[in-house]
Design a protein around this nucleic acid. Structure first.
Length: 771
DNA sequence: CAGTGAGCGAGCTTCCGCTTGACTT
């Protein structure tokens, strides 16, 4: 018999809360939303005030049954989903789907998982807030309308299976625009001048930089000629106190950024590790936009700091969330038990936990105190020119004892240490000076984490969707994450030593990228198309605008269906207009003429992605096609490069009576022999690879396959039993089947295999039928 | 996993935001 049933969103949360509430309460979880708009068609009745058609989510059938049974038994059901738009909707869906009795249902909320907060919530129940629910329905319906009307348009006009949406399309836009900025970027340069001084007694050295950069080589020479026999005198030594404050505790987005900067984790890696820490009870909820810490946590942090570092390191701080549209249903991400400085777990979990511990503790520590010193050394006879030396001394480390936030800009901060004891009016000798040509750097490309940061600033997306959004735009091949090597350039360096001026040239590498996001051709073409016809949805402030409207629905000042109608009417009109009036958008570009046939050579996006084509379909002969390589782009490929693509496949010769050919497929370059495919290695080039090397690759591949092979049957139907990443499996007619764990793969007979294949097939047909 | 690209037409793809396991080759 259940007296009180409490329903929360997450099972880990349910477990914790159950401990606080005692015997009379049973706590269960809904595992997020339990129903959603029908997947077929729009799932919205446009003629009946945009009435949503909700269906119970298939993977929630068991959860719903369990909750329904428990709720029937219970004397009181407490709906304890989060206190934001989505949480309120979850409570309402539960109320509807479980057919709850209003008299026996209470809605409660809490922002932190502490016994006090939960007890307080139980004592202050309320009713379901239908205005908030309606704001969520508006959000849901708008996203469906945008996504399910724009995507099919793209299938028609660009390429099948593409997608567009309020969040993902703007994310791609950010990348495309940044990429174009980089392409258009013309670097500027100037000479940075550094000098090395010494006192008259040669007791110390002082490095200083000229306060102005000089435009070119000749200016530097002139300048050096003027100063080479000059006397220098310190005009001033200024000392200023300064302070540094710790960063706020982690939210989802700042955790993703720091884990990327400090450990190189992808956003999805960070979230997987955080999920494990959360489930093990080590940290609070990891999908949050709040920087708030509970009073209990603040007290615990203070105690830790006093104990570990002493009272002068402790300072109680409260942080306020500044990001747009934050809904603050949870606390910041922090350790559940601050006295645990380390945990036992995998190394990734340990590192992430330790980072969270440090950030949380540091956020409750005192400021660091510094003294900044500036020494000015004017250049005589050249007005406003002076050499400046800057130093920084740490007087009190404060929070820096524990943690320092990293920065995105890679340019290394020059070490500003302690300066020598130079006095005002002191005379100095110029020992040596050097000017180096410095180019301005192009705008930085986005990383996964810096894109999340930007989206959060714009109020686009939610903590639970940052990682999935990043993965969606990569899955659609709008964006690729990769490393690119830098380019070389020559820079000038001019030196002044012993009153002589010399110059030399040096090589430097610039623009190399690691783990950055690059828009693809498809991403660019789709972006341009959407920008042309749907500038409102693509606007960076579109989400912020509709959020304002959702807020007024939540406050009861606006009817949700009216808001949707106002958006949808003109939007749908634009969809219809684009459908009728826009050409197929394929990023087509004619490169020139094929010297062999005289036919035009062009590139465009085909059914399978970017491709090159010789001739047109109107010709008598069929046109020739070839896919572009992954490092080639519609906007930049040359005629020569395109023509090269048609040199494949190449026939290299014969091995064991069968031909060896080399070509490029969906997964990159490969050699082929007697039905066997072997990928080329990085150092191999399909255009130049020779027979001997190809044979080597084929033999390596044979060996690797033999290692994988457990046994094979050459009966009526060929069957192989192989070892894979996920354990042994059976391959048959190019399809794979799992082997049950209870079976020893070594002992399988031909008949056993057929049986497993049969069962596997049944499973698959069932699944497809369901869909 | 690896030769695709016209056109015919059926049937499929797709959104964002809440949550975890089941599943993969």
């Amino acid at each position: 018999m259940i007296k009180n049933l409490v329903i929360v969103e997450s099972p880990a949360k349910a477990k914790t809360i159950e401990k606080f509430l005692g015997k009379d309460f049973t706590v269960k979880s809904s595992y997020g939303h339990i129903r959603d708009l029908a997947k077929k068609d729009l799932g919205i009745d446009k003629d009946k005030g945009y009435k949503p058609k909700y269906l119970q989510s298939p993977d929630k059938k068991n959860v719903i049954k369990e909750l329904r049974d428990a709720s029937k038994e219970a004397e009181m059901v407490w709906l304890a989903s989060d206190e934001d738009r989505e949480g309120e909707a979850i409570a309402w869906h539960l109320f509807e789907v479980l057919k709850l009795d209003k008299e026996k249902t209470r809605r409660i909320v809490f922002h932190e998982i502490t016994p006090k907060a939960i007890k307080n919530a139980i004592e202050n129940p309320r009713e379901i807030d239908y205005n908030l629910v309606n704001a969520q329905q508006a959000r849901r319906v708008l996203d469906r309308l945008v996504g399910f009307e724009l995507s099919p348009l793209l299938w028609k006009k660009v390429k099948p299976s593409l997608s567009a949406g309020r969040v993902q399309s703007v994310a791609v836009r950010l990348l495309v625009e940044r990429e174009r900025e980089i392409i258009a970027f013309k670097p500027d340069y100037a000479y940075k001048v550094q000098a090395n001084f010494s006192d008259k007694q040669r007791k110390y050295k002082l490095n200083a930089e000229l306060n102005k950069r000089l435009p070119n080589h000749d200016d530097v020479k002139d300048f050096f000629d003027k100063i080479k026999s000059q006397q220098f005198q310190v005009s001033s030594v200024q000392k200023k106190p300064a302070q540094k404050s710790p960063a706020a505790p982690f939210t989802t987005s700042t955790l993703q950024q720091e884990a990327a900067r400090k450990f190189g984790f992808s956003v999805s890696q960070t979230m997987t590790l955080a999920q494990r820490l959360y489930e093990a009870g080590h940290i609070t909820y990891m999908r949050t936009d709040s920087v708030n810490l509970s009073n209990d946590a603040i007290a615990a942090a203070a105690e830790q700091i006093n104990q570990l570092y002493g009272e002068k390191y402790q300072k109680t701080r409260k942080y306020a969330t500044k990001s747009k549209g934050a809904q603050e249903a949870h606390e910041a991400i922090r350790p559940t038990y601050l006295q645990k400085q380390e945990i036992e777990a995998g190394s990734g979990e340990q590192r992430l936990y330790s980072l969270i511990w440090k950030r949380t503790v540091a956020s409750q520590m005192s400021n660091a105190k510094l003294e900044k010193t500036t020494i000015n050394i004017p250049v005589e006879h050249i007005n406003s020119y002076k050499f400046v030396a800057q130093g920084e001394v740490l007087l009190f480390d404060g929070f820096l004892k524990v943690y320092m936030e990293s920065r995105d800009d890679e340019e290394q901060q020059e070490d500003k240490g302690l300066l020598p004891p130079v006095k005002e009016q002191e005379s100095l000798d110029l020992m040596h000076a050097r000017a180096q040509q410095r180019y301005s750097s192009q705008p930085p490309r986005y990383t996964e984490a810096s894109l999340v940061k930007k989206l959060e600033e714009l109020g686009i997306g939610r903590p639970s969707t940052y990682a999935p959004t990043i993965s969606t735009i990569q899955k659609r091949n709008y964006v690729v994450k990769e490393d690119r090597p830098g380019k070389e350039r020559t820079i000038n360096e001019i030196e002044l030593k012993d009153q002589k001026v010399t110059s030399q040239k040096k090589q430097e590498t610039y623009g190399s990228e690691k783990g950055k996001l690059f828009p693809t051709d498809v991403g660019m073409v789709v972006n341009d198309y959407l920008m042309e016809y749907f500038d409102n949805v693509m606007d960076y402030s579109f989400t912020a605008q509709v959020e304002k409207e959702f807020d007024s629905i939540a406050e009861g000042n606006r009817k949700w269906s009216a808001m949707i109608d106002e958006f949808y009417k003109p939007f749908h009109h634009k969809v219809e207009y684009a459908e009728e009036n826009s050409e197929r958008k394929a990023g087509e570009r004619i490169l020139g003429e094929d010297p062999k046939s005289g036919k035009p050579v062009m590139v465009r996006i085909g059914k399978y992605g970017p491709m090159a084509q010789i001739g047109t379909v109107d010709d008598e002969e069929k046109p020739q096609f070839a896919s572009l390589r992954s490092n080639q782009h519609l906007e930049t490929i040359t005629l020569e490069e395109a023509l090269d693509l048609f040199k494949l496949p190449r026939n290299l010769g014969e091995l064991e009576g069968k031909t060896v050919t080399v070509s490029v497929g969906r997964f990159g370059p490969y050699v082929r022999h007697d039905g066997l495919f072997a990928s080329l290695k990085k150092e191999d080039d399909p255009y130049t690879i020779e027979f001997d090397r190809a044979v080597e690759l084929i033999k390596d591949k044979r060996e690797a396959d033999a290692k994988k092979l457990i046994k094979s049957f050459d009966e009526k139907e060929k069957i192989k039993v192989q070892n894979g990443k996920y354990g042994p499996y059976i391959t048959h007619k190019r399809k794979n089947y799992r082997i049950p764990k209870s079976v020893d793969p070594e002992k399988l007979t031909y008949e056993d295999c057929l049986e497993i294949i049969d069962k596997g097939k049944n499973k698959k047909t069932k699944k497809t039928k369901k869909k």
